Amino acid sequence: MSAPPATAPAWSDAGPYDAALRAGRGPLFLRRPDGWLLPLEVERWCARADAVDRDVLDRCEGAVLDVGCGPGRLVAELAARGRTALGIDVSGAAVEHSVRLGGRALRRSVFAPLPGEGRWDTVLLMDGNIGIGGDPCALLQRVAELLRPGGLLIAETAPADVDERLDVHITDARTASGTPFPWARLGTRALLRHARDWERAGQWTAGGRRFAALRSRSSRTTSSSAEPPKRTAVISSQRVRNTPGGRPVADR
């Protein structure tokens, strides 16, 4: 499955984005053609997982796929806990930073073929990544393909009650990178409206950030909570495969 036109190339070829990740600081923004700027929290992304992040990770089940992992603070924290986790990002700088922190990451679009499809227990869409591709319904459908039946999606939503589609550039406020690409901003209410084929598994606010948990529908019995007991495993490389039983693990 290929990425929506221009979305992955725009991020992967974004000089200001890669430069900010390598420096560990902004300023960095998404900019609309009318000049509107959305600040991107580069310093927080490049730091270690904070208390709000760790609370999200406490809610994760089993093997975790972090979509749009950025510089890898979440996959690094999961790896430190001995959890099976993989990050994907279209930015080479993001993947490099993830590996330096101790996480596992691949340079890949969520819409491209991925290891362990249909076997992941949890998918994360943090830091506004519900906006990837500018089509939340298409992204939710793709996430459902990646999860096991009854698997868990945890998404960070916009702090405001918004539901909008944008054409944006990545910019450091001096230069913009490439052609505009589609993005979306969704508050929790908007996400729940789009997630008609999902079961609600919780929503919460912490540290000024908002989150929603959704469970893919399944005929098997699953918990409705986003806080189940967690299974652990250790991975030792960036390559991930399926076991005969279907669990995504790493090649050794």
Rank of each mutant, 00 (worst) to 15 (best):
M1V: 15
P4A: 05
P9E: 06
S12K: 09
Y17W: 04
D18A: 15
A19D: 06
A20T: 00
L21G: 01
L21T: 00
L21F: 00
A23R: 12
G24Y: 01
R25Q: 12
G26C: 07
G26S: 09
P27A: 03
L28S: 08
L30K: 11
L30T: 07
R31F: 06
L38Q: 15
P39S: 08
V42R: 14
V42N: 12
E43Y: 08
E43G: 10
C46Y: 02
R48Q: 07
D50L: 00
D53S: 06
V56Y: 03
L57P: 00
E61T: 13
G62M: 11
V64C: 11
V64D: 10
P71S: 09
R73E: 07
E77P: 02
A79H: 03
A79W: 10
A79M: 05
A80C: 01
R81C: 04
S91C: 09
G92C: 12
A93I: 14
E96W: 06
V99Y: 04
L101S: 06
G103A: 04
A105Y: 11
R108Y: 02
F111N: 04
A112F: 02
A112G: 11
P113E: 14
L114A: 01
G116L: 02
G116Y: 10
R119D: 10
D121N: 07
T122Y: 01
T122H: 00
V123A: 03
M126Q: 05
G131P: 10
I132C: 10
I132W: 08
I132K: 09
G133C: 13
G134D: 14
D135G: 14
A138P: 12
A138K: 14
V143I: 10
A144S: 06
A144P: 03
L146S: 13
R148T: 15
R148F: 03
G151A: 03
I154L: 01
A155H: 06
T157D: 02
D161E: 15
V162H: 05
A173W: 00
R174V: 13
R174D: 13
T175R: 14
F181R: 03
F181D: 02
G187I: 08
T188I: 07
R189S: 11
A190V: 09
A195R: 01
R196G: 14
G202F: 06
T205F: 05
A206N: 05
F211W: 03
A212G: 10
L214S: 02
L214W: 04
R215C: 08
S216P: 11
S219R: 15
T221N: 15
S224K: 10
S224V: 14
S225I: 01
P229S: 11
P229F: 13
K230T: 15
A233Y: 07
Q238K: 12
P244N: 00
G245L: 15
G246F: 02
V249G: 08
V249K: 04
